[in-house]
Design a protein around this nucleic acid. Structure first.
Lengths: 135, 135
DNA sequence: TGGCACACGTTATAGCATAACGCAACAAAC
DNA sequence: GTTTGTTGCGTTATGCTATAACGTGTGCCA
């Protein structure tokens, strides 16, 4: 997975996501970057597209928001070349926790292979209450 | 899971979904029901909300569309009281295949329990190409 | 130096979802 | 039987999410 250096817009968007402790919507990103010259949604979406392709950012389908990949320096799962990403998203505090599960990957893989289904992108998201918010 | 009888609007919406061989967006449902007096998105969304609560309809988060539950009469997984629903969605032909995997449920459950995370709704969606479309 | 690829900026538009109001029907409680 | 609460319904308006279509500039390299 060789990626070119990030462009200015891509860096700015990634920076917003990295600084945030929660998923951020595209329009929120736009607002946070108005001082840096951002004026239109497409500037955000185009950057997000590249960042997502590069695996630096994940999109949370169930809440239409984006997060920086939490594991790009992690040694787990053989570094950044891991399989499917899963998220637990707290509906209370909004926090999203990224995790990986090899067994689940394997099960889904098995299902797909058995049916000659060729996966492109897999989404696994659990919405619920985190420990703090459930108390 | 005791549900009251469906209202007229709910029946109409469920009927559209049942007849369709593909997921349908809320606005498409609206269009298909204009002849039956539907005029506003909320009429659709309110029906969808109830149907989803009742487990008769599933929402596909990754494509913002809805499908009738494929398994409400099935004997698998102890009838309609099964666990999490998963989907394989073909980006070619648009078809969505519903399936269940007990092992995956179990793994996700285990992850959640270990962290005292209380799941409310879990989304599992594989987008890719079905056998026909991959050929 | 022409052609190509790519990022960018702008305007406009499409698509998805909900807020807030009021009305009507029905059932339980008194 | 009237009150009261609940539920569904219809309407208008609005907000949020995402992309189409156009043109510009820059760097690369054949």
């Amino acid at each position: 997975m060789i990626s070119p250096a990030l462009t200015k817009n891509q860096s700015l968007v990634l920076d917003v996501l990295t600084r945030s402790d929660q998923p951020v919507s595209a329009y929120t990103i736009l607002d946070r970057l108005r001082d840096h010259g951002f004026r239109a949604p497409l500037q955000v979406y185009r950057a997000l597209e590249k960042l997502t392709e590069a695996g630096l950012v994940h999109r949370l389908e169930s809440i239409n928001a984006f997060v920086a990949c939490a594991h790009r320096n992690a040694a787990c799962c053989g570094g950044h070349a891991h399989g499917t990403v899963a998220f637990a998203i707290c509906t209370g505090c909004g926090q999203a926790t990224e995790f990986h599960d090899h067994d689940i990957d394997h099960r889904l893989d098995g299902w797909a292979k058995a049916r000659n289904f060729r996966p492109q992108k897999t989404t696994i998201e659990i919405r619920g209450l985190c420990e703090s918010c459930a108390a």
